[in-house]
Design a protein around this nucleic acid. Sequence first.
DNA 1: TTGGGAGTTGTTCAA
DNA 2: GTTGAACAACTCCCA
Length: 535
Amino acid sequence: MHWFRKGLRIHDNPALIEALADCRYIYPVFCIDPHFACPDRVGVNRYSFLLECLHDLDQNLRTLGTRLYVIKGKPELEIPRFIRDHDVDLLTFERDTEPYATKRDSSIRDELVSSPSKGRKTVVVSSHCSHTIHDPEQYLSLCGGNIPRTYQSFIKLFEQASAPRIDLPPPTGDMVPDMSAADGCNSSYDVPALDEVGYAGFAPSRKYIGGETEALERLRRFVTAKERASWVRGFEKPSTSPNSIDPSTTVLSPYLKFGCLSVTKFYNELEKIVRGHEHSKPPVSLHGQLLWREFFYFSSYVTPNFDRMIGNPQCKQISWDRDAAIVRAWEMGQTGYPFIDAIMNQLRTEGWIHHLARHAVACFLTRGDLWQHWEEGVRVFDIYLLDDDWALNNANWQWLSASNFFYQYFRVYSPIAFGKKTDPTGEFIRKWVPQLATFPAKYIYDPWNAPLGIQRSSNCIIGTDYPLPIVDHDTASKTNMGKMKTAYQMQSSAAAEEVPRSTTAAKRRKADPVAPADGIEKKVNLTAFFKKSKS
DNA sequence: TTGGGAGTTGTTCAA
DNA sequence: GTTGAACAACTCCCA
């Protein structure tokens, strides 16, 4: 049995290949987990995208002579049940390092390992790391407990790691056994419809279609097609537009999130395109984007409580507000800043927004303007993003709120000026904030400054048809900068007081309150921590 | 130990 | 239109 969770593909799937080797029957299984099938936590667009991935996977598996067996319920109960019912003796899956997944998987592993004691046959459990280029454990052992906190130092670690794997081709039909004796025609294992999994009455956008077939086609269209080579070689993320009507980047992130596209394959394809040519470099290149993903996965793996401020030793402790009405106004595109509202409307509607658009709205919600907790931003992005990824979402919110990784809190995005650079006439705003569709370009980023006559002739009275600004940006951002300064100072002095023995110890403690002063001890401590967290 | 340099992607204004 | 300084000054890394 191969259990699909992420990694919803047949290409470059080492765990699937292992399951297929010398098997009498093969059961490719996906379990609909009620933890995720929940509109409050996973928006309809992402769930619909997932079901499309499953349909595509089912089709691809049928071409090989088997199918996808979709079961429903808590995996901790349903996976062992399926294994018993189908007399499975080998379970394979792709390793998942998120806390929810590690807990789930170790519980299932424990249950299966204890099978003999319950009078059942032994089940071998085998997992493979293929969601990231390298196993985070490899980085951990290479760095010897000296965890990189910056992208550049992570790159050095990446360069010390083994060469990325050669990505595996999809299995062929002759690797799949005759499944006619298995219950492959049982329709109770079919991919369910949205309304069967708690999304009755929800209408997905379907702007981006899920699945491996679509992922590989998109990779071809945007990356590997001959005519794309110069674009790929010249790619620099900061010079792509956050507010173009058509996405200015590849939008492969949702496919990486679900593993419809292997990150290793993506990396190797990029290598082929840039090798022997002049090309952009990390951090801004396309390669660089995959290395950011790698860096944040590793950071999330080695940092306790990575999805929280409290208990997260790398995270600045800041007294953010939590005002439900303010967060809600931001979420629903009602801040009165058209650039911010347009982005949030695009997010809720289509599930994908440009990386720099994420920067703008995240800065606005936290240290820039509204002073709301970054965890609230994580929660909202968790609902709406197609590419929502636990490690990346939490890392980026910490970055943008200047809580971790990035500390130049005095660099604040302007909700008025930033978007003008790439869209001076406000076409993006006209599309996503239709009340402002006929507003003159001069005022479209700050419509409250338009004379009443212009508001009237544009059929949009600010304060009536579209909100007044929720805060004054100039005032709020200056006030917040002061709060950041105070928060940073308090953290420094608290750290210095905590360990007055030496400046080095104090500095280290400040950076990592749970770490012992000595590097070797730190390594031992980390190892102990991982053992503990795995168990 | 310490000081300087670098840091994915800020803004504004003057030259 | 482009470039560089000022804004006020952060942390991490490494020599």
